[in-house]
Computed example of a mutant assay.
Amino acid sequence: MTDSLTKLAFQTVQQGKNYFAIAHKMVSGQIREWIAPRVEQQTQSLSPQALQKFQKRVDEILERDWQDAEAGVYSTDLLFEGATDTFWWDYPLLCWELPQVWEKANRRSYREFSSQIDTRGYPNYYLQNFHYQIDGYLSDRSAELYDLQVEILFNGLGDTMRRRILAPLKQKTASLAAHLETPRDLRILDVACGTGRTLKGLRSTFPEASLFGVDLSPTYLRKANQLLCAQPGELPQLLQGNAEALPYRDAFFHAVTCVFLFHELPSPVRQNVLNEMFRVLQPGGVVAICDSIQVEDDPDLKPALENFQTLFHEPYYRDYIQDDLPAKLQKAGFTSVSTYSYFMSKYWVAHKKATTMA
């Protein structure tokens, strides 16, 4: 009875998030048409078949989320935590910022940064106002609003999508953990950790492991530190760094994760990042990547993918949705590459081949 009530509560909360996100998009869309009509941005309607598939994908990912929590992959408490924790503070700020975002989008302005932000030292591809966000990923305000923006974009399923890496990661690292002296000896790195939400999930699944996070944005790392300080267990070690030159020694980690990064990288950089992941991973280690689905996963949803790159400033997305990530993983040296998808996210899990004794 308790599990049934918890599942009902989970479904009710998710349904509320879904309805709110849809309502926000509809109302804000109407307001935008009144005060800042879109300039030559044509979007495609989804077919009835695509809409049915879309809803089926929602149902599937929610059921998998519940099943993983019920199986003990992570605490059921995690199902009720999310970017809505600071909703009453963040949502008014998000709405206040929308007219500026719309104005930037209409001007196709995507490289504007406050004079107070030092952009020196960052790669050119990173100095973008992705999603037409104010100051891209380099301001405290951007870091404060990012998680709520993602939840609204994905109808309340942002964290649900992130958590899909946890079950395969727990399964694949079990044999590695069995040979360690203590659970704390298991080392996991989250590349492009952002505001720390993936690390929060990792802490629930690996309560005693040594967790590490690296990101280019100092403001997002501050936000991550704020979030993770409130969690039980040892605080993950956070570093500012470029995923193309990870600040760790060779073969240091047992697992590496990466969520929502690759669609915002040029193709050659994706390969560089995979090469670095391979370098810092121990033989026998596992990498788990989450990002957007691609055209090959469901051609009926291609209009939704093309709408995304039309409505948001995502300069590398068109190439990403056609990219062959398994080939890039294999080129980096990974083996046993497996892929699967849930809702609008796709996952790659691969291994660094274990060394054999002569």
Rank of each mutant, 00 (worst) to 15 (best):
A69E: 04
A69K: 01
A69L: 03
A71T: 04
A71G: 06
A71E: 11
V73F: 09
Y74R: 03
Y74L: 02
S75Y: 02
S75V: 00
S75T: 00
T76K: 09
T76Q: 11
T76H: 11
D77N: 05
D77Q: 05
D77S: 04
L78Q: 04
F80V: 03
A83F: 07
T84F: 10
T84L: 11
D85K: 08
D85S: 09
D85C: 06
F87N: 06
W88E: 00
D90H: 03
D90A: 04
P92Y: 00
L94D: 02
L94W: 03
L94H: 00
C95R: 05
E97A: 06
E97S: 06
E97C: 04
L98K: 00
L98F: 01
L98Y: 01
L98E: 02
L98D: 01
P99G: 08
Q100I: 03
V101Q: 13
W102P: 02
W102H: 07
E103T: 04
E103K: 09
K104R: 14
K104W: 13
K104T: 11
A105E: 14
N106G: 10
R107N: 14
R107H: 13
R108Y: 14
R108A: 15
S109E: 15
Y110H: 15
E112F: 13
F113H: 13
S114P: 05
S114W: 11
S114H: 11
S115T: 04
Q116L: 11
D118F: 01
D118I: 00
T119S: 15
T119L: 15
T119V: 12
G121T: 05
G121F: 09
Y122I: 08
N124P: 12
N124Q: 15
N124C: 14
Y125V: 03
Y126A: 12
Y126D: 14
Q128D: 14
Q128Y: 12
N129Q: 15
Y132C: 10
Q133L: 14
G136D: 14
L138H: 10
S139Q: 12
D140S: 05
S142T: 09
S142C: 11
A143D: 11
E144P: 00
Y146A: 12
Y146W: 15
Y146P: 04
D147Q: 06
D147R: 02
D147V: 01
D147S: 07
L148C: 09
V150E: 15
V150P: 09
V150F: 13
V150R: 13
V150W: 13
E151S: 07
E151P: 02
I152A: 08
G156W: 03
L157T: 01
L157I: 01
L157P: 00
G158Q: 08
G158C: 08
D159L: 05
M161R: 06
M161Q: 07
R163E: 13
R163K: 07
R164H: 10
I165D: 15
I165V: 10
L166V: 01
L166Y: 03
A167I: 03
P168W: 07
K172A: 09
K172F: 10
A174L: 07
A174W: 06
A174R: 09
S175K: 05
A177L: 04
A178I: 06
A178R: 11
H179K: 13
L180V: 00
E181F: 08
E181R: 07
E181V: 03
T182A: 09
P183I: 04
R184A: 06
R184S: 07
L189I: 03
V191I: 13
V191N: 14
A192H: 11
G194D: 12
G196F: 02
